[in-house]
């Protein structure tokens, strides 16, 4: 199907789950997006309010889940919506993480954990061992701990919080250094705040380890036309959101440093 023909369709919110004080998961039916691969995103229309890009967190039998953090006007409004409310969906858009059969390390920060949970589910049947490192500001903001623990086994799960209320009191990058020196991984996957992604890229690049990172940018069209989400020569919505180590190296001057702002000028991150 030509991407321009991926027209918006409306659907009802079937279920809303509280994941943390600031994150809710919304569940709905959508045939096209239920076939999405981990890493892909969709554009979700909040009628009369806004349209926002969201990573797909789970799919099964026509059902799709996305996790939304209340950070701006649109997402705060979405948190007030009830089951039965109508939303619009376009997508799935963008590329996806590539599967590895070897040992995988997943590193998630904040809501960046959502697409990695989707990936972990898919990898769990194919790899012998998954290690998950998750970081958040506080204990309450550590997302999907039970599900991650089940998939990766608790012994292969490391958690960090900035305030020390759970796991190690540090940034997610701190234990990573030891993990990378101690064990061999065939692929490192990461998603989260860009400053974190940049640090993890530098750590893997130094050790010559393969990495795939999902990036986030201001998005308008979602289909590679408007230029809002450009980083270097790449469009996050169309060429990403998942980028390889080689690509991250090409855009390292902008990675974690600057982005295109709402008026099209480069602004610091």
């Amino acid at each position: 199907m030509p991407i321009a023909n991926n027209t918006m369709r409306t659907t009802q919110i079937l279920e809303i789950r509280n994941e943390s004080p600031t994150v809710k998961t919304f569940v709905f039916t959508d045939r096209l997006c239920s076939k999405a691969k981990p890493g892909q995103f969709l554009m979700l229309w909040i009628p009369g309010i806004d349209e926002i890009p969201l990573s797909i967190m789970d799919t099964s039998n026509g059902i799709v889940s996305v996790s939304v953090k209340a950070v701006g006007d649109a997402t705060r409004y979405m948190h007030t919506m009830q089951t039965g409310a109508i939303i619009g969906i376009r997508g799935p858009f963008g590329n996806s993480f590539t599967e590895t059969r070897g040992r995988a390390l997943l590193v998630g920060g904040g809501t960046g954990t959502a697409p990695l949970l989707f990936l972990a589910k898919q990898l769990s049947t194919k790899t012998d061992r998954l290690t998950f490192v998750e970081g958040a500001k506080t204990k309450e903001e550590l997302l999907f701990l039970k599900q991650i623990g089940k998939i990766c086994e608790y012994k292969n799960t490391i958690t960090t919080t900035e305030d020390g209320t759970a796991g190690l009191q540090c940034l997610v990058t701190k234990p990573l250094s030891d993990v990378l020196d101690r064990e061999h991984f065939d692929m490192i996957y990461t998603c989260g705040p860009e400053v974190m992604v940049k640090k993890i890229f530098e750590m893997t690049d130094k050790r010559k380890l393969p990495i795939e990172a999902s990036l986030e940018r201001l998005m308008r069209c979602g289909i590679g036309l408007c230029g809002s989400c450009v980083i270097g020569k790449y469009r996050v919505c169309r060429d990403g959101p998942v980028f390889t180590g080689a690509q991250l190296r090409e855009i390292k001057n902008e990675l974690g440093t600057s982005k295109i702002g709402i008026d099209g000028s480069k602004v610091p991150i």
Binding site: R220, C221, C226, I262, G264
Partner: peptide, 26 residues
């Protein structure tokens, strides 16, 4: 500078694409 419009700024229809970005520019 202009920030342009809030989303949705494009609609994909069966026959083409409708956009109203609102001339965002620095």
């Amino acid at each position: 500078p202009r920030v342009g419009y809030a989303n949705p700024t494009i609609v994909q229809t069966e026959s083409g694409l409708i956009n109203a970005m609102g001339l965002p520019n620095p």
